[in-house]
């Protein structure tokens, strides 16, 4: 896991139990977890203040969609992994091609996706 050493992952997830599991899996794989952030505003603010290499984003934050943050991160060239229960058809057109992990997911899958995003960076 040398590649993941010190790699910071920006985690946005409003469901704390889910966020807990994401955090556990990422930490277990050697990543540094920023977050989890549970609100849109809070996550946007944090993303601007902190430095990270990749982000896993829940789409629906208590009714608010995370799209503004996605746009901002893509603008900054930060790889984004969408973690959501929505299907592609439910997404705005421009986000359908983004890497997406459907809930519920298991740990190894999450790690593999994050790794491939970092590798393609």
């Amino acid at each position: 896991m040398t590649e993941s050493e010190g790699c910071r992952v920006f985690v946005v997830e409003d469901e704390f139990l889910v966020a807990l599991q994401i955090e556990d899996d990422l930490v277990a794989a050697g990543y540094v977890v920023l977050g989890p952030f549970t609100t849109l505003q809070g996550s946007i603010t944090a993303s601007r203040e902190q430095k990270f290499e990749v982000a896993t984003l829940d789409l629906n934050l208590r009714g608010e969609f995370v799209y503004p943050l996605v746009d901002e991160l893509l603008e900054r060239g930060v790889p984004v992994l969408l973690l959501t229960g929505y299907t592609a058809a439910d997404l705005p057109e421009r986000f359908r091609a983004l890497p997406r992990l459907a809930k519920p997911f298991d740990g190894p899958e999450l790690i593999r996706q994050v790794e491939s995003l970092l590798a393609a960076r």
Partner: peptide, 25 residues
Amino acid sequence: RDLLVAELSHRVKNTLATVNSIARQ
């Protein structure tokens, strides 16, 4: 309806993710 379906999907999956997490804990 689409919204509800999506919402339902979102909630079900979130719930499952929660269940998943509960189980692990």
